[in-house]
Amino acid sequence: MINLGSYLIISFALFICGILVMVARKNIIAILLGIELILNASALNFVAYTKFMNNNLDGHIMSLFIIVTAAAEAAVGLGIVIRFFQLRESIHIDDAATLQN
């Protein structure tokens, strides 16, 4: 039986996975993937709450907007990563440490 709780558990797992990816992975592309996981976790939450609890379209609208802005953010993020790669020849997050101090 799939109920609201199942969706919430899945989305929470996705959220935690996203945070873990962002903390643990050193590859910048993988970190961008982690951001996508977090955003999708909340989009899933919005849809699930709308389906099971609330009888309005607010959650669907929210998740549509989340998908659109996630795409925009990924585009900008990848553009910046490409520029960083051209300058440093590396997409390792530890190479982005010249600004400290």
Partner: peptide
């Protein structure tokens, strides 16, 4: 700077 901003901001 842009890279850090984008990563922290997305998170």
């Amino acid at each position: 700077a842009g890279l850090k901003y984008a990563l922290y901001g997305g998170l």
